[in-house]
Design a protein around this nucleic acid. Structure first.
Lengths: 307, 307
DNA sequence: AGCGGTTACGAAAGACGTAAGGATG
DNA sequence: CATCCTTACGTCTTTCGTAACCGCT
């Protein structure tokens, strides 16, 4: 067992191997020979006295121990990165790779603009913008920041609320022809277009005075894609609960109507999650600040206090 | 500039040099030659491109940059330590050095017992138990856990409440001869022995129903030592506000009286502070758990929820 | 003069890449 | 059979300790 091999380098190699699922790939990335990368991994295993990856000739799989280590290793490396940035004599700019995972719909509209602005404000940042609504295995995926609507299913991450989604009940004027004006009683008779996952088949609303209203709508159509919901609602296939930021333009030009202006579905939190490390690299803290600030300007997204 | 020297080792050497205030001393500690330790420091400075310590031939002084780095370096090293412990194949026991700074009075009585019990429960831990009521410069001192009554003057630390000090107004039966029973009105006529720092010369009490009572007592004696207060109060030099944990025995055997049983001075928080690192080494998390649990058993110290 | 930090030098350790070996889909 | 990981080997980098050098107190 060697004594002098840089411990952080060992972790870097390990993390890269885990990300790429390949020793030779990681070696290419890091400018090492395959042999070196392989040795690094062995060295790490030998130091910890446990197997991190199970090797079958043509594939690598993290062991449970490896999976556990992966998260902590990333956290530590982030810590080093931040330390290096904070204490480098030459004032370092915001730079380096930054991988963000965000929800599809939000991420391809407003957030995409914000992300693009951020990148252009910091040209030395190399931004990876992955849109994905599914829970990700943060530790394995190697991302720096995960933006998610609603609960973040990972207790090991630091969660920070960056906004809230105001949701309202909308429908096209056509659909409403026979219902005008819509009352609380009549709304339960409307067909609804549901955006999956749709919890329990019930819609729960609350009005400005805190009163509750719940009913089980007739679902005319269900889809997991918000744009499909949108088209269906425009055509009059049903009413729907949609985020204000998504339908604001339609409300303005009259293609959709907020049919129960006093009533709102529960707000959803927009959370940003990242690894706990003593400090964050500038590119991440800067990105979070940027997103938080910009998101607050989007109609129907109440901002939370920056911390 | 070398490329392969272990980055964490560099930081370790730097931290040790800063703690010892001497390169040769640190070298001895770490089992290196003076030359190596010196080179490590130079190497670190060269990598960061700034001067960490100002050397005059016979003394070392941290520069501001060095001071800043010190804290983050410790945090990172703690992170490595925790990672190594968490992921070592051979199940690691609670072990290693642990330096705690605690308040003098609390630290030489109940807390000393708790600390001793902890050490005996974990013989492989080498415990340094420094008692000090003054604010310490955490980053420089190199301690792992700082227990302090009241506010912890360091925003970079993680604070955790481990208990609260209930304080009551006590006096010796002798002093009370002419005042028995003591009423709210009469108490302001009593001489008081003050425990410095004594805020603003005023005593503020609150009763069980939330009513306030404040007065400016005549101070017969002021000292920063709680044992001196204790002796003076026993002899009848005045009443005093003292923690319940400190006077419980005297109350039980009648040498002191809780003269206003319905009234209490504001509770003081007992806080534990430590460096933010992703995870804590077992010896620290284990110590915190032990202290929190044990402190809850001391009369007059309300425990907070463990997290 | 003594103590402590820095620099020079030779020796030893070890990390790297190349290349060969072996296993799997 | 192509790909990918591991192992062996020779080279070369780099680090280490010793020891001489230099500056303060």
């Amino acid at each position: 067992m060697s004594k002098t091999l840089d411990r952080l380098s060992l972790l870097e190699t390990f993390v890269r191997i885990a990300e790429r699922g390949s020793i030779s790939g990681a070696a290419r990335d890091l400018g090492l020979s395959q042999a070196s990368a392989s040795r690094h991994l062995q060295e790490l295993e030998s130091r910890f006295g446990l197997q991190l990856m199970r090797r079958t000739t043509h594939s690598l799989a993290l062991t449970q121990a490896g999976l556990d280590l992966l998260r902590d290793a990333r956290s530590l490396l982030t810590g080093w990165d931040a330390l290096r940035e904070t204490h480098s004599g030459t004032d370092s700019a915001v730079r380096g790779p930054l991988k963000v995972v965000a929800p599809v719909a939000l991420g391809q509209l407003y957030l995409a603009d914000i992300a693009a602005d951020f990148q252009m404000a910091h040209p030395e940042v190399s931004l990876t913008w992955d849109l994905n609504d599914q829970p990700i295995r943060f530790a394995e995926v190697g991302c720096d920041c995960w933006i998610r609507i609603g609960r973040v299913p990972d207790e090991t991450l630091v969660i920070r609320e960056i906004g809230r989604v105001e949701r309202l009940v909308v429908a096209s004027p056509g659909l409403l022809a026979g219902f005008c004006p819509v009352t609380q009683d009549l709304v339960s008779g409307l067909p609804f277009v549901a955006l999956s996952p749709f919890e329990g088949g019930r819609i729960s609303l609350r009005d400005t005075q805190g009163r509750d209203l719940a009913f089980e709508p007739r679902i005319s159509m269900a889809t997991n894609n918000i744009f499909a919901v949108h088209r269906a609602v425009l055509k009059g296939a049903g009413a729907a609960i949609l985020p204000r930021w998504f339908v604001q333009a339609d409300l303005d030009n009259g293609r959709l109507t907020d049919i129960l202006p006093a009533w709102r579905a529960a707000e959803l939190r927009i959370n940003a999650a990242y690894l706990p490390a003593g400090r964050q690299p500038k590119r991440l803290s800067s990105f979070l600040r940027c997103v938080t600030d910009q998101v607050a300007l989007v109609p129907g997204i109440g901002a939370s206090e920056p911390r």
